[in-house]
Write a protein that binds this DNA or RNA. Structure first.
Length: 309
DNA sequence: AACCGCTGCAACCGCGCAGCG
DNA sequence: TCGCTGCGCGGTTGCAGCGGT
């Protein structure tokens, strides 16, 4: 007796989202905030199921999402956390706020898993939770990829997404200001902070995964996410291109105005070099072994990642 | 130029969990 | 306590784009 699929209703549209649908969804979320997905299709008139709306928002339209160009450091984090947590992509994604679980999952399945299998032929993958890197370290490793990343840490911004992708990036960018000022978002951050404080005794070790019951693990995960919230605030500056030119109200722009807004936003992004954020600094520090960040990875994981590159 | 296989990624599907009445 | 409902997660699929022949 299975539950009937949510998208079985006649008239529910499937397949790729159109820019128009994206704009409708973004406009609605800008006004009402994410959540209550059940009501989104009915209130917006979108012929999509609630799940599809949620997924589209989470994986593509949400502000601050970065696609493609995984850095060696991100690879290292993913590899390390995958070894620690297994295929719990949502948990892994919580350590990489710019990445979605879907993105990480895809990247793992299409790139990293293959690399791991390829290299596992010559090296033993340790089954224990401390992955892996020892053999590589003992054999020496090529850290050129890491050095490159450290030389040009902002290279990721020079990626050339598709035309439509750039338009959704602009949607995200435009939304950035709303998310920052959104009372809901602020409340969420506050809530995280409170959770973090309440668990301060454990937070110091919250980055250490210990053997515990599934329920406890779940709670620990939440705590970890809470710990990350503060870091997320720092990330804001990285995630956005600093909408100093002013927030464009999404409810008011359509057609040619939208195209112009997109063009201007793109121009802004091309002209302005993003400031060095706390995270960028953290990445530098991490590479130099001066980790005081929220996620402390074994330095050799960078090497591991570079090795795979 | 046409075909074919491969790759990467967006989107879908099914299940489990949590909240609520 | 139980059933219903909505949300979130992980696995899987489908398709567009690309390169090779």
């Amino acid at each position: 007796m299975g539950r009937p699929p949510c998208c079985d209703r006649v008239g529910i549209k499937k397949g790729p989202w159109t820019p128009e649908e994206d704009i409708i969804l973004v406009s609605y979320i800008q006004e009402h905030g994410p959540g209550n997905w059940r009501s989104v299709p009915t209130n917006t008139g979108l012929m999509r199921c609630s799940k599809s709306c949620r997924l589209r928002w989470i994986n593509y339209l949400r502000p601050g999402i970065k696609h493609g160009n995984f850095t060696p450091h991100e690879e290292g984090i993913i590899i390390h956390l995958q070894a620690l947590l297994g295929n719990r992509w949502a948990a892994i994604a919580s350590y990489l706020p710019q990445r979605t679980d879907n993105d990480i999952k895809n990247y793992w399945n299409t790139h990293l898993k293959k690399k791991m299998i390829d290299t596992a032929g010559s090296y033993v993958i340790s089954p224990d939770t401390s992955p892996v890197c020892h053999d590589y370290m003992s054999k020496g490793c090529n850290t050129e990829a890491v050095k490159q990343e450290m030389k040009f840490p902002l290279s990721r911004f020079s990626q050339t997404p598709s035309i439509y992708a750039s338009s959704t990036e602009n949607i995200s960018r435009l939304l950035e200001g709303w998310v920052r000022s959104s009372p809901k978002a602020a409340a969420k951050k506050k809530e995280f902070a409170i959770t973090d404080n309440n668990n301060s005794s454990s937070s110091s070790s919250s980055n250490t995964i210990t053997a515990a019951s599934p329920k406890e693990n779940k709670q620990a995960e939440r705590n970890q996410v809470g710990c990350l919230a503060a870091a997320h605030e720092d990330l804001d500056s990285l995630l956005s291109f600093e909408n100093t030119s002013g927030m464009i109200s999404w409810g008011k722009i359509h057609g040619p105005q939208l195209a112009q807004a997109n063009a201007e936003a793109k121009q802004d992004a091309e002209n302005s070099q993003p400031p060095l954020s706390s995270l960028e600094k953290w990445l530098f520090d991490e590479a130099l072994g001066q980790t005081d960040g929220f996620l402390e990875l074994p330095a050799n994981c960078l090497s591991w990642s570079a090795m795979l590159s």
